[in-house]
Design a protein around this nucleic acid. Sequence first.
DNA 1: CGATTGCTTGACCCCCATCAATCCTCGTGG
DNA 2: CCACGAGGATTGATGGGGGTCAAGCAATCG
Lengths: 229, 229
Amino acid sequence: MNKCEQCIVRKLNSLGELTKDELVRISGCKSSDFVKKGEILFEEGDHINGVFCIKDGVCKVTKMSSNGREQIVKLVKKGDLLGERSLVSEEVSNLKATAINDMEICFIPKEEIVRDLKSNTNFTMSILKEMAVSLKEADNVIVDMAQKTVKQRLAETLLHLNKTYGSEDLDKPLDIQLSREDIASIIGTATESAIRLLSAFKKEKLIHLKGKEIYILNPKKLQHIAEGF
Amino acid sequence: MNKCEQCIVRKLNSLGELTKDELVRISGCKSSDFVKKGEILFEEGDHINGVFCIKDGVCKVTKMSSNGREQIVKLVKKGDLLGERSLVSEEVSNLKATAINDMEICFIPKEEIVRDLKSNTNFTMSILKEMAVSLKEADNVIVDMAQKTVKQRLAETLLHLNKTYGSEDLDKPLDIQLSREDIASIIGTATESAIRLLSAFKKEKLIHLKGKEIYILNPKKLQHIAEGF
DNA sequence: CGATTGCTTGACCCCCATCAATCCTCGTGG
DNA sequence: CCACGAGGATTGATGGGGGTCAAGCAATCG
C-alpha cells in the first residue's frame, strides 16, 4: 500500500493542504484500487460516504435525464477529487461515475476526512475554493447549454478538451479517448449530430480524426465558432 | 440600523450558525439598503468583496452568453445569501444580479465574514453544505438544458416556481412577477417561444394567466409533461 | 470468422429561432 | 381626465437546426 504523504497526486488537490500527521492517518485508512475501462465507480442512488482521489486515468460523471438519456456533467482526471459532496450531505449520490480508461484510485472514508475538515482551516478553505470553482464552471455550462447551438457547443468542448488533455504540439492527439457517444453526451445532443459536425470540422481542417484520436488543428477558428461565427 | 442578532432572516441561511457575539460584530459593519425593481445589485466584472443577505424581495442572477443573450442562472429570494463565491475567490464576479421587485438587502464586507469562516466551524460547514446543494441543483439544470425540450423545461420551471413561490391554494397566483422575457431567459429560449407555450398550457387548463400573475392549476399534468409526456 | 458493437451517412420532419405586424398596458404629460 | 407614446405581449409566417429512423460500413472480440 502506497503512502499518501509520499504521493505526488495530493499536491494537485485540496489534500495538499493537510499536514504530515493528518496525511499519515489518512494513509492508514484509505483503500487503493484499480478500475478497468468501462467499470462503474458508483451509481445514482449509491451511498458514497467518502472521497475518491484519482491517481491515474479519467472517468466521466453522468446523470440520467428523465427522458432516459445520460448526460456527462463533467470529466474527472488524475489529481482531481471525486465525491466531495458526500462529505457535507447525508443524501445518496445524484451522479454516476464510469471509468473512461483504466484508472488507479484511492478511496478515503468520510469520517476521517470530515475530522480534518473541522480541524484544519486551510483544508476547509481549499475545499470551499474548489467548490466555488465548480459552481462557476457549472454556471458557464448552463449558459452554453441554454443559449448556444450544438455546433458552438462542440467547438467549445473541443477547445476545453484541448486545454485539459492537449499538448503544445498540434501534431499530437488529445490524451483522452472518447467514443462518439461520449462526445455527444457532453454537448447534449444525438450521437449522429455530433458525428456529422465532427466530420464537418474535419472537412474544414479544424480538426483531424483518426479512430478515437482527436487532433486539434485550428483552435483559433474553433474559438471563433464557439462564440458564434 | 437594524441588528443582525434580532433579524429573523438570518435563521434562514448559514448566518444562523453564527454566535451572538459574532452577529453583533457583523451587525456593526454591515450596511442595509433598499433596491428598487429593475435596479442592478452588481454586474459581471464587479469586485463584490462581500455577501448580500436578502431581507426581502427577489432578484435574478444572470450571465451574458457570448452570442449576446442573458441567461437567468438562478433566482435569489428572501432569506438567501448572494455572492458567497466572492468569499473564497479573488476574481471579479462572473454574474450579474438585478432586482425583480423592490428589495431590502444587507451587505456584509468580505473581511468580516472570512474571519468567522476561519474560526466558526459550524458556520463554515453550513456554507459548504449550501454550496453542495447549489452544485447539485446546477447539475440538474445542466441535464435539463441539455436533454429536454423547451416545452419540458417550461413545465419544469413552472413547477419549480410553484414549489418556491406558490401557496397550497391553487386559486392564488405565484408570489413572483416575471416578465415573459424573464421566463424565456430562465428556460433558455426565445421570448416568443415561451409565450406560445404558455398560451398552449393555458388553453389546456394547466395554468391560468392574468397579466403577469401565474396560477398553477394542474401540477400533476405539468410534472408529467416535464418528464416527457 | 461470424457476430456484436460502434461509426457514418442519407432521408425525413418537427421544433424552435427569427422576423414582422398587431394588440395591449401603463406611465407621462398636456 | 384623456391622449399619446413606448415597451411588453401576442400571433402569424417561414426557414433551418437538429432529433429520429434506417441502412450500410468498419472495427473489435470471443
